[in-house]
Simulated scan of single mutants.
Amino acid sequence: MTRVTPILVALVILAGCEPREVIEPVDQSVRPARIFIVRENQATIKHEFVGRIEAAQTVDVSFEVSGPLKALPVLEGQTIAAGKLIAALNPRDYVLSMREAEVQLKLANQDLTRKRKLLTSRGISQSIVDDAQALYELRNLSLSQAREDFADTKLYAPFDAYVARRYTDNHVNIRSGEPVVRLTDLHELFVVTSIPENLFATITAERVMRLYAQFAFLPDERFELTYRENTGEAESVAQTYKVTLVMERPKSWNILPGMTATVHLELNMPRGDGQHVKIPTSALVADENKQFYVWLYDKASQLVESRSVKVGPADGEGITVLTGLKDGDHVVASGASQLQRGMRVRMLGKPSAKL
């Protein structure tokens, strides 16, 4: 025992003198984050409205004379060319009226000719000839009216049209002015929507970035729109203005009046003091006073510092910053609420300007 103990002590002392591997502590202040690059031209506002498709022109076609309907060759949903027969009345009564007017005019002409000869021989007075002349002119007008009524027994398409509706069936007695069919001009379509007064007052042609329509049954298609007109007075209850937009009728899809569309309006921010930019909503942080700020990233030092900002409206892609940022600033876009002043940030991937 007396010999072993000094040896063990010496071994323990030698082991304690050997150098140990030093484990460096992990720097807990370095956090990974995605970095967003601010770009001025991303400051846009998007709005959506419900729109209704209307035809560029809608006409309820009717006869100017009455009578039994003899022919109605058009069908609902049919496209017809300009000048095509739409409907026709039985012309029998109007043919008889026209022939009677022709006979009356012939008799009046004969009477006028005879009385003019008598006037030459001083057999009658001038006033009798004048009466015969007036009667002749009256009969002539009657014949013109009878011919016009006969022509009105047929209806023709005034333009290339789509038959939206038939109001009656064949062989029915039709009164003058009673609608027979509804025709629509579908060369171009109107998209009618309502815009609130507070937004309508700030829209100018320079601010409109894009204007298009989408349909629920065609989610991948976008149809460009152009402005046509708007009402001059706001609707009294909702305080909205009715705006009419024009959409070219697509050849591949059967878009018809009465369908519902979503109108998308993309606007630039209105001009004002400073630049307007857009950032991801995840980059925005609020302090205890509900004031907003972001974390600016310095690429050289990898440090972050807070920057107060004034924000505007948000949409599905991000939030608009009115003041506090400029083009080219690097902003922490993820995990911003976990950062503190003086922290270092390690970029995840490359900085991106995509929202």
Rank of each mutant, 00 (worst) to 15 (best):
A82S: 15
A146D: 14
A234D: 04
E148K: 13
R182H: 01
G232Q: 05
D160C: 00
E64V: 04
P6H: 04
E197T: 10
V103N: 08
A15S: 09
S301T: 15
L96S: 10
T5I: 15
Y297V: 00
G335I: 06
L72R: 08
R182A: 14
T113W: 13
G177L: 06
G123C: 06
I37F: 01
E48H: 14
K117M: 13
V95S: 01
E76M: 07
D298R: 09
P351T: 09
P68F: 09
I319N: 03
P73L: 04
V172Y: 09
L138W: 02
A336L: 06
L186Q: 08
Q57D: 07
P158D: 08
L72H: 04
E188L: 10
I80P: 00
E102T: 06
A55C: 05
H264D: 00
E40V: 05
N41A: 12
F200K: 06
T44D: 02
V311Q: 07
V181M: 09
Y167K: 01
A15I: 08
A132D: 03
T231L: 10
A87R: 12
E76L: 06
H187F: 01
T193I: 05
K242Q: 11
K70Q: 15
R182L: 07
Q145V: 00
R207L: 14
N268V: 04
A314K: 04
N90A: 15
T79C: 12
S125N: 11
P73V: 11
H171K: 08
I80Y: 05
H187R: 15
E288Y: 12
L118W: 14
L245E: 02
L267Y: 02
W253L: 08
E148N: 04
M259H: 02
N268Y: 08
Q126S: 06
V180S: 08
L143I: 03
R341W: 01
P25W: 11
P280G: 07
